[in-house]
Design a protein around this nucleic acid. Structure first.
Lengths: 146, 146
DNA sequence: TATTGTTATACTCTATAACTATA
DNA sequence: TATAGTTATAGAGTATAACAATA
């Protein structure tokens, strides 16, 4: 167990703090693309998962379905996203990237790699791997199904 | 460097996600005490740093000074916090815990240990130490002076 | 002139309740 | 009855601009 040295060095506090700092490290790039963090998450997720219902997307990026609606509509309005009723279950609305949405997602993915590299640069490559693995373990335990 | 396997396993995304999850793990306890996360951070920080100006406190817990004002006033109104002008620099207003504020902070600190232990329980003690150390390194690099 | 604290205000993110349509 | 999506709305949390008091 980790010794409770002080509030500021508690792991929970550091996670919240660094999560916020990581978000800020993307801010400039996202603003250049005219995207919010959630819009960015939608594009990058669909880039990998091809076709997804709004419910499933909601779970993956941890944004409530009702809050996802205006985000999706904005991306559709900008021609980045395509939304169509699932013929096999007409309640569902399947999301896919349009051609220009896919191109935008590719550019975002490239930029994200550079930003992540910069953000993690205070750690050695081995430490970066360790950190990623520890976080994935922790997430898997607390967020089963994702 | 960490391989960019997918957006959902990027370290930046995981940090933001786990920061949010860590916050939720405190939620129930904080609600029992009738405190917001920021109020909690104020009490726990003053528990360790005795006496602090609002500016310094703001830096430590990463809450903007202007947003700290109503938080502090709420705690003063509830008798948990004492705020007094610094006689050596009359611009500053020194914050200290009252007796009952100190007692509340002690209870919070005990509860926080249990919550942190539970949250980190999917990791071995050695992994918990590693994670804490990696996060502290990363924070120190990105948040110099804290 | 710079710093500490403050107000008013706006914006983003998240959450509560309730609804439509399909299954 | 349960699920996918939606609407309206309220609440946190955070950020922009400008100010008063003191150094």
């Amino acid at each position: 167990m980790v010794e409770q040295l002080s509030f500021e060095s508690a792991t929970g506090f550091l996670l919240a703090r660094l999560g916020s700092m990581a978000g800020r490290s993307w801010q400039g790039m996202l603003r250049e693309h005219g995207l919010s963090p959630h819009e960015h998450a939608v594009l990058l997720t669909l880039r990998e998962r091809q076709e997804l219902g709004q419910r499933a997307l909601s779970r993956v990026i941890a944004v409530d379905p009702r809050n996802l609606v205006p985000i999706i509509e904005g991306l559709v309005a900008r021609g980045l996203l395509h939304r169509a009723v699932d013929p096999t279950d007409r309640r569902r609305r399947l999301l896919t990237l349009t051609r220009i949405g896919g191109e935008a997602a590719d550019r975002l993915a490239r930029a994200a790699i550079a930003i992540e590299r910069q953000f993690l640069s205070p750690l050695t490559p081995e430490q970066q791997r360790q950190l990623n693995q520890l976080l994935r373990t922790l997430r898997a335990a607390h967020d089963p199904g994702n």
